[in-house]
Structure formats: C-alpha cells, structure tokens
Design a protein around this nucleic acid. Structure first.
Length: 109
DNA sequence: CGTATGACTGTAT
DNA sequence: TATACAGCCATAC
C-alpha cells in the first residue's frame, strides 16, 4: 500500500514524472496524470513548465486549456485534432490499445 | 487559521 | 453538445 501521500511534495514529484513520460505526438489529461488532484497537476505545470512538455496536457474533454498557443504546438507534433479540440480517442496515451478492451472494470494502472 | 482561487472532473439539466 | 453545480489538493492572503 503506497496509496497514502502524507507528503505533498512526493505527489507533486510524481506528477512531474508522469508528465515527462508522455511521448511526443501524444497527449494526456489532467485526470490521467492524477485523478485525485487534477487541479494540482495544473499548478505543478504552471510552476515547472520550463522543463516539462506542458502542451501535451489537455482537459478531459479534449479542450485545450492554453488555447491557440498550445494548439499550435500539438499540431506541430502531429497530434490528431478535431476542430479546436484534441481527439483523445486517438491522441490520448493509453496503456491498453485494442478493440477487445471491454470488461476492464478496475484494470487500472 | 479561514476564505478564495486555479492550466480540473464527473454528474445532472 | 452546452451550461450549471459541487467536490478535491495545495497555495496565496
């Protein structure tokens, strides 16, 4: 059990690491980084953005938080878009790709 | 120490 | 599909 995080710094450090692990040309949502504290992810990005691929982090519905600026960067990486939003179905990082992904239930992580 | 705010999310209307 | 509301974590005042 290492679910407990008495130290905020540790949680933030993990967020930073996860953001850095998002591959180029793909994106991830705030909830995808930390479902329990998506707002915190934004705070971390805002304070650590200089060393992170911040543009690869978008909202759960595919909308882009930083607008045009971020949108250009994503397009530059070849991220599939759908209008002003990212096509999460294709661009979002997923650990499990395949049509037979149905009864996952709690197969998270 | 309490209140407000933010690069958010899921559910309801 | 779009708008409204409440819940959550850490920080700023």
């Amino acid at each position: 059990m290492k679910r407990a995080r008495p130290d905020p710094g540790e949680r933030m450090a993990e967020i930073v690491e996860r953001v850095r692990s998002v591959p180029r040309g793909k994106v991830q949502t705030y909830g995808g980084i930390d479902p329990l504290a998506p707002r915190l992810v934004g705070r971390v990005l805002a304070t650590t953005h200089r060393a992170l691929p911040w543009h690869r982090i978008v909202r759960a519905d595919g909308s882009i938080p930083q607008g045009e600026r971020q949108r250009e960067l994503l397009l530059g990486e070849g991220v599939p878009m759908r209008g002003e939003r990212v096509d999460l179905k294709r661009a979002r990082v997923r650990r499990n790709t395949g049509p037979a992904t149905k009864s996952l239930g709690k197969t998270r992580r």
